[in-house]
Design a binder for these strands. Structure first.
Lengths: 252, 252
DNA sequence: CGCCGTCTTGATTCGCCTCAACCAGTGTGG
DNA sequence: CCACACTGGTTGAGGCGAATCAAGACGGCG
């Protein structure tokens, strides 16, 4: 089934509502990097009252689908997802990867339906935040409103970074940049910045970076041969961060 | 100096404050596609009271510069701007073009300083909207808050479109898509969708699309030879919209 | 006029894609 | 239990599209 250590045991096809799902924002390890950042403890209860936590998504399940009505934005509690949109000619473009503590779904706000789809790359626990309620709440909580603006603005700047990456950088620079991005996001969650497991396939990486699988594979091999990385399938160890940093040559 | 017909005569190096600058949102042709969209007439006065209109920007002047403190977002009243950010190796990446009725500067919200620079491609009139005031105001005007969210969300979806374009499409597809985008945005402003003047140089187009000047030039020539376009320097006429549409093959 | 920036066009080069083969791990059914 | 298919990853050979390099055309302007 899933190759990763399942901390949440969901073996039934249609699991009953386990109480494990009912985690609170107060106790959530990710509360500092997720939504509640700018909200004080009193207000947190109000925010929490509108958040819904359903059963975890299994690997391969869709969180939402492109062109369907937009209702909520989502915060990743555990696992990993990819965002992608279909192109006219049947292919797809991966627009982002979402790790624990990150928020997705905000591209659906503008016109009432999702502009992209989101799919679980591994078993993932998700907080659903109905946007109507969030909007109403944020009108009375200036800190929350500000945080939402910041969250969306960050998404914009990150997209611009990716645009630069795709427009200007070589295959090696793109791969290096992605690895460093994941490394940094892991560090933010108190995980190892030098050793981690990629949640996504080579295909997804290539798709995200505008490259083919073969190119991704070749770059990994080259970086390994040069002693920059140790690659064992999805298991990555960054041996020489400085060289990787230089290889990334990142912009913005 | 400027190669384009200057409709606003500002010949002095430091022009005094002309009353032409004091246009109101009520009389602005662009009010439907700019900010006030979701605001009723009574509230419009409150919004307008925080908007500042300074002297027009001359071609080549910066509206704001990357890494400087973020204060305001801006709406284009006339003219055109490009947004861009510098890459580590001294080059730059154009991240967008901004035409009348469009809003820019929102990438600075997330961390208090601009993530990109903005430069006038021709003489441009700009409305400056201090973000602090806007934020306070939007807390009491739900329609305005909603509109701001939508505006930022649209920026995200448009960035994702560009990402797809850069990741998956050929030179010809990219150029065609840009032309159609400008055409559509002109139509929104009641201008001709088939005949217009590009405000930006070939260099800027190439930079934006992740291509070189030479490639842009070649694509224009090819499209002209095939009878899809008539190109006369920056003057463009779309002769065969259907073929251009097919050439664009756009995604998302 | 001659200079300069922008644009165009041609010849060559190079990075990545395409196509193809192969391998390892995993699941499946006889 | 093994044969088999299948998925995901790696590696190699060759081709193509866009970059690079180089030269020239055009237009504005001192």
């Amino acid at each position: 089934m899933s190759t990763h250590p399942a901390t949440l045991s969901v073996n039934e096809p249609f699991p009953p509502c386990h109480q494990e799902f009912q985690v609170s924002c107060h106790t959530c390890r990710l509360s500092r990097i997720c939504l509640p950042l700018a909200v004080n403890s009193g207000d947190l209860a109000r925010l929490e009252s509108i958040i819904e936590r359903s059963r975890p998504l299994q690997k391969g399940e869709l969180l939402y689908r492109e062109k369907t009505p937009f209702q909520s934005i989502y915060a990743v509690r555990s696992g990993a997802l990819k965002g992608f949109c279909g192109t006219r000619d049947g292919k797809e473009q991966v627009t982002g990867f979402y790790l624990p503590g990150e928020v997705l779904g905000m591209d659906g706000i503008s016109n009432g339906h999702h502009a992209s789809s989101a799919l679980a790359l591994e078993t993932s626990a998700i907080c659903e935040i109905p946007f109507d309620s969030l909007q109403r709440l944020s009108a009375s909580l200036p800190g929350l409103q500000r945080h939402l603006f910041q969250l969306m603005s960050r998404e914009i700047t990150e997209d611009q970074l990716l645009i630069t990456l795709l427009g200007k950088n070589t295959a090696e620079e793109r791969v290096a940049t992605l690895l460093l991005s994941i490394s940094r996001r892991n560090a933010r969650r108190q995980l190892s910045a030098s050793q981690f497991r990629l949640p996504m396939s080579r295909v997804d990486i290539g798709n995200y970076l505008g490259l083919t699988v073969e190119t991704i594979s070749r770059v990994f091999s080259r970086l390994q041969k040069n002693g920059v990385l140790r690659v064992d399938n999805k298991e990555i160890e960054i041996l020489d961060p400085e060289t990787l940093q230089r290889a990334a040559n990142l912009a913005c």
